[in-house]
Design a protein around this nucleic acid. Sequence first.
DNA 1: TAACTTAGTTAGAGGCTCTAACATTTCGAT
DNA 2: ATCGAAATGTTAGAGCCTCTAACTAAGTTA
Lengths: 200, 200
Amino acid sequence: MQKTAQKTGYHHGDLREQLIATTRGLVEESGPDVFSVSEACRRAGVSTAAPYKHFTDREDLLRAVALQGFTEMTERFHAAVAPHVPGTLDAIAAVGTAYVAFAENNPGLFKMMFAASKDHPATEEAGHGCYGVVLNQIARYLGHAEVDDRVMEAGFPLWTFVHGLSFLRIDGKAEFAKMGASVEDIVTRATARLLPAPGA
Amino acid sequence: MQKTAQKTGYHHGDLREQLIATTRGLVEESGPDVFSVSEACRRAGVSTAAPYKHFTDREDLLRAVALQGFTEMTERFHAAVAPHVPGTLDAIAAVGTAYVAFAENNPGLFKMMFAASKDHPATEEAGHGCYGVVLNQIARYLGHAEVDDRVMEAGFPLWTFVHGLSFLRIDGKAEFAKMGASVEDIVTRATARLLPAPGA
DNA sequence: TAACTTAGTTAGAGGCTCTAACATTTCGAT
DNA sequence: ATCGAAATGTTAGAGCCTCTAACTAAGTTA
């Protein structure tokens, strides 16, 4: 099977990937709940039954999109950490800022990702891999060799914070509630305050 | 118009309120996106066209439910503050804990409330009223007579935190990410760390 | 090249939202 | 008390949607 699209006129070539891409666009345009498989088919130029050769149902397609989202988010995290000294507050805050930035740039996708990862092992695992990037930084910061329970406990309030900030910004609450500073500053400040001192 | 339901066999008596109640139950059972007006009608024992005499469309019904949610949440906040000395960290943390508790007890409703309040003045206002309860406490804590910009800025990180915690708990992420303490303890700790010193 | 698999197609069942047209009840003004 | 209007039900149906069944075309492999 070729990865590249090569329409024969009948066989599409790479419908699965195109449906994922189209769906992602639609979810972003109009929200995950409004999204329809039919509309995705129309845009991809196939019949409304075609997707069911690649996905078991509507949910399955949405999950595939969510999975792609987690993969992409993980890449962004790595890119965000890269320019900083590993295990510093700067590195940790940079991931937090990247988290919120990803949410703001892909609001529909972001919201979907967490709904989709509920009770679905593969997507859940992708989410954990994503979270692992920060946890590694926190482990170094605390001087731990591994991501143990103490690292997890230290990371949780941070995740909580950037997750909440993402939702508030997506839902337009941040304008009403004067933030008084940039997202980056707010995340950096919160990171410093919520993390325990190194060596704990 | 009577407030109490008094079925005549034709006229329902209080369909509007019953639809709101039934919808709330359905949203809680199966999530906001899965909810169908038809199912609500079946449970209320009316035809599928009946709701449209009371609500302009599906969204309008959901918004009415969201509005009820905000009203109820506001009551919970007041109840949470009551036993504490006004303007103390305890009082503030109590509202935060009540926030997360409400979300955990009404996950479907909670998620819907924020989606519904987007771009809808009445619901948005209900949300602001709700938030006002904490802001008042923070104003007192900081020694400000009114809820001014400084108070808003101080409150924002707190809102961010409890909002994020609510979503993580609803979506079942809190089990994976070891919290290491009760919701109440985590909220209390975060409150103390995220708020500036009084008098600022 | 025949047989099998993969990935499209059309047709249609059944569910949903919402509207139009009609029916019944209630209410307010006489 | 009654009559007309307003409110709140009803049925019927248009036009979406998801998903399945049955069929068909193209690729793959013995």
